[in-house]
């Protein structure tokens, strides 16, 4: 194994593109090192991207925020303006692992690890986040939702690196939230999860909404029926019940050591319901 920590993105891409065997980008390393330890991968090349300019910055841009691919969860949590704009995305990121893991783990790493249970991904998808990807053929933008294609697989091609993730501006009276179900209070991988982002008008009526689910399908799900269930409502009980049912209906989970199909299906709806209520109150709605 070779370890490189280039200073420029061009060098990084060059290294990755010319490596013939398996290579791995190293951001926070909280997935990569575990995989090395368990000998799940034996890469020829590791490219640490933390020394590349801009990778560690959170920058305000067009009313939203651009988050460098090497920014840790802890750094996101310490950024008051980011927390104010996208509390749900930040809370999703901060749910990952322990305080120690937070000191290293990144949004981009969580996304590229492509676990169906990745916590930040449903929140980013609900937020319509967009990744900036640089590769041998230049730079492209890609909605976060289109990056994971199946468990452990992304749509990135050889030599491509995510350099940042953009969380867009949002109208006033918007709120987002993310909730997951785990058997303990910390240190578990999500058994089911939901992200909700919504905007309300001055009457408290939901005008836009996006609802996503994690850990209940091979990749993150966007549940259109759930958003349409609450658009035009003030999250009355009936609307919430429809959202919950729509979420459960959308689930396509597996039975494994972490949960049963039945359990995941049911709790995903519960998480979505509760997340919607939190997002609504963050948007300024009162019930």
């Amino acid at each position: 194994m070779r370890f490189e920590s280039p200073d420029t993105i061009e060098q990084a891409i060059g290294l990755l593109n010319t490596c013939e065997g398996t290579s791995r980008v190293l951001a926070g390393g909280t997935d990569v090192l575990v995989q090395l330890r368990l000998a799940l991968v034996e890469p020829e090349l590791i490219v640490d991207i933390k020394h590349i300019a801009g990778m560690r910055d959170i920058t305000a841009e067009d009313g939203g925020f651009r988050i460098g691919a090497a920014v840790s969860g802890a750094e996101m949590g310490e950024h008051a303006d980011l927390v104010a704009l996208w509390p749900g995305v930040v809370e999703a990121m901060e749910l990952i692992g322990s305080t120690q893991v937070q000191g290293r783990a990144t949004l981009a790493g969580n996304l590229c690890n492509a676990s169906p249970a990745a916590d930040s991904v449903p929140a980013m998808v609900a937020a319509n986040a967009v990744a900036t990807i640089v590769g041998p053929n230049g730079t492209r933008e890609c909605p976060v939702a289109d990056i994971p294609v199946s468990p452990s697989k992304t749509s990135l091609t050889k030599g491509e690196v995510i350099t940042s993730i953009y969380l867009p501006a949002r109208p006033d009276n918007s709120g987002d939230a993310y909730l997951r179900f785990i058997p303990r209070t910390e240190m578990d991988i999500a058994v089911s999860s939901a992200g909700v982002s919504l905007t309300i008008n001055c009457d408290g009526v939901v005008t836009q909404a996006r609802v996503s689910l994690g850990a209940v399908a091979p990749t993150v799900l966007v549940v259109e029926d759930a958003s349409s269930a609450i658009i035009g409502t003030k999250l009355e009980d009936a609307a919430i019940a429809t959202l919950q049912a729509a979420c459960s209906a959308a689930c396509n989970p597996i039975d494994d050591k972490r949960g049963t199909v039945e359990f995941r299906t049911k709790t995903a709806g519960v998480m979505a319901k509760r997340a919607a209520l939190i997002a609504y109150s963050r948007a300024g709605g009162s019930k």
Binding site: F3, G29, L33, V34, I46, S98, Q100, G103, R104
Partner: peptide, 9 residues
């Protein structure tokens, strides 16, 4: 910054 040294190269 608090980290797990087993997760740092």
């Amino acid at each position: 910054r608090l980290v797990c040294s087993c997760l740092v190269l």
